[in-house]
Amino acid sequence: MSKAHYEAEIKNSQEVQKAKDLCSITVGGKEIPNMPPEMQLKVLHSALFTFDLIESVLARVEELIEIKTKSTSEENTGIK
C-alpha cells in the first residue's frame, strides 16, 4: 500500500460519509468491517501517520549508513 492509496481512501470516505451514516472501505483487497465513518477516518489517518513514521526512520537509517560508509572509506584510504 502507499500513502497515495490511503489519502485516496480518506477522500473517498469523506465523500461517502456525506451520503450515508455507515460505509465500507476496501484496503488491499480486504474490506474493513463496517464501522462509523469517523472511526474509519481515524484508522486511515493512523495508516498515513505510520507511513510518515516509516519514511522518517528509513531516512535516518540511510543517513547513518552513509556516515558509516564514509567513515569506513576514509579509514581504508587514510584520509580524514
Rank of each mutant, 00 (worst) to 15 (best):
E31T: 12
A47N: 02
S2L: 08
S71M: 13
K70N: 13
L58T: 04
V16F: 07
S46E: 14
K18Q: 14
V27R: 06
E31K: 13
I54L: 14
I25M: 03
L48P: 02
L44E: 02
K18V: 10
T72I: 09
K30N: 13
K3T: 05
V61W: 02
H45I: 05
K68H: 14
Q40W: 00
M35N: 07
L53Q: 06
N12C: 01
V43Q: 09
E62V: 03
S73T: 14
Q17D: 02
Q17S: 14
L53H: 07
Y6N: 03
V16Y: 03
R60V: 00
E55L: 03
K18G: 15
T26R: 12
K70H: 08
E38G: 09
E31A: 11
A59K: 13
Y6W: 07
L53S: 09
I10W: 03
T69D: 06
E15N: 12
E74S: 07
H45K: 12
T26V: 15
I54P: 01
L48Y: 01
V27L: 10
S46I: 06
D21W: 11
A47F: 02
I79R: 15
V27N: 03
C23K: 08
I10D: 00
M39S: 10
E66P: 00
K18P: 02
G29F: 12
H45Y: 11
S56C: 00
E15Q: 12
I65E: 11
F49L: 11
M1E: 05
S46R: 12
I65W: 06
Y6M: 12
G78E: 13
E55Y: 01
K3V: 02
T50H: 08
E9V: 13
E15H: 08
G28V: 08
S24D: 00
S13L: 15
F51E: 06
M1L: 10
P33K: 13
N34I: 05
I54H: 09
S24H: 04
I25F: 05
H45A: 10
A47K: 03
A19M: 12
T69Q: 06
M35R: 09
S71H: 12
I25Y: 01
V27A: 09
A8N: 14
L41R: 09
S13R: 06
V43L: 15
S2I: 03
G29L: 08
Q14F: 03
Y6E: 02
I65F: 11
I25L: 11
K20W: 09
D52T: 00
L58S: 11
Q14A: 04
S13C: 14
P36W: 11
I54F: 10
V43H: 03
K20R: 15
L64I: 06
N76E: 14
P37H: 09
C23N: 08
A4I: 08
E7P: 03
